[in-house]
Design a protein around this nucleic acid. Sequence first.
DNA 1: CGGAGGATTGATGCTGTTCAAGCGTAGTGG
DNA 2: CCACTACGCTTGAACAGCATCAATCCTCCG
Lengths: 247, 247
Amino acid sequence: MSIHLLPVGRPFVPPVPIPPSYLLDGVGKARLVSLSTALPLAERDTLEPLSRRVSLDQKETLFGQDEPACSVFNVTSGALRLYRILPDGRRQVTGFAFPGDFVGLSMLDRYAVSADSLGPVTACRFERLAFRDLVCRQPGLMMHLHEITGQELSRAKDMMMLLGRRTADERIATFLTGLQERYVRIGRSSVTLELPMGRLDIADHLGLTIETVSRTLSRLDRDRCILIVPGGVRVIDQSRLDLLSAH
Amino acid sequence: MSIHLLPVGRPFVPPVPIPPSYLLDGVGKARLVSLSTALPLAERDTLEPLSRRVSLDQKETLFGQDEPACSVFNVTSGALRLYRILPDGRRQVTGFAFPGDFVGLSMLDRYAVSADSLGPVTACRFERLAFRDLVCRQPGLMMHLHEITGQELSRAKDMMMLLGRRTADERIATFLTGLQERYVRIGRSSVTLELPMGRLDIADHLGLTIETVSRTLSRLDRDRCILIVPGGVRVIDQSRLDLLSAH
DNA sequence: CGGAGGATTGATGCTGTTCAAGCGTAGTGG
DNA sequence: CCACTACGCTTGAACAGCATCAATCCTCCG
């Protein structure tokens, strides 16, 4: 069973693409050489025996917010939705986890969000305490994981800017280009941008309503900026999208 | 020179209050015993020699976003404003740093935000690489710092929920109760809640305009929920404030 | 006393929400 | 093969919350 430690690079500096085959079957002996923070192979090897495979069907929940966090996960295929809910039902989707992403890495004793599957998902599960103990003995690995958490924190700050200060158009554009970059990074880039999540998930992620998401996408389609296709969108005018999402 | 490692506790479980004197003069020999994740004194002692004191006047900048991150800081007195700015001037204040708070702890090679002082500030500065090397050799310390980063990430998700899904009233109430809790934690709680930042800072933090912040505070004052006083507010109806900010 | 900067308050307008209806496609069963 | 339903998505019309624009008011400080 293979763990996916994706390269930790600066945004907009996509590292060497990883063959999709490596990411999609979590079995082979393929090795991932990280660009900036290469992990000694020994560390990979010590991590792997701890993991056990988990499989989820569509819309199954992996864990719930505030539950005792007894595991750390690494997604190997499919996509997870991560979210919080207010007592009155308002929801904030804090993010989506794709192959290679860790969830629960901050290792507090309770999960900070709920996680469920958008479609079929497979992941590696680590017993938290064992994971913690092991990582403690490998300062290099721990540093790497800390760095990944730092990246997530930086993305969280991007989200604050987006949610606090950007218009609906900008939010949608930023969301789309952000997905593009993530797909590039995991070697999944293609002409059409797959959207495994529904409109409501996008809305709850971007702080909008489903109607506004739908309207905004429709307008971008009408303006020949994107083309809405079943299961995703095709980007027609990349530069206009980049302009809208420009930080 | 003394470093402030504040307890890492769950939200709403304020740990033993720390005498303000300890936090305000960064000199004495006082020791901070953390509730959940006590640091061996040896670790504190190894960290301290690395630090150098920095002092800032009002509205001086400590570092700018995207600058090479060559230092990690620990605030000892005063308060910092942490923010990002879009090319067109829109600003998102991602947070404020109070005594005991670390900034730059995620240790990416560039700062994720800009930081400047709201009033006079003192802090401990650590050379990043030395800090990193040292921390690498102290798994317990590193774990603790990782945990602090995890807490920050969790608060970032609170902010996403706030910015994406909550009304102006709720944002203001949540902001006020959040400040209360932080002040309790650093032993600074008092009848009046000090607001060292201006209305514009609050607005840019909560994704509102200065006018909305002012109006909302005025209404809470008119409704006898708070009392606006010079430099802060006095909370009159705590339960109503808690209700508004309830997660 | 006068000026500057921050804060408050009012009038108006816009962006995104709400409410409601209709569309398209996939799945089911006659 | 064609209803029929279910579900997600789209579209329209009216509305509301917060933003914008603008004037005024503090309060501190020279």
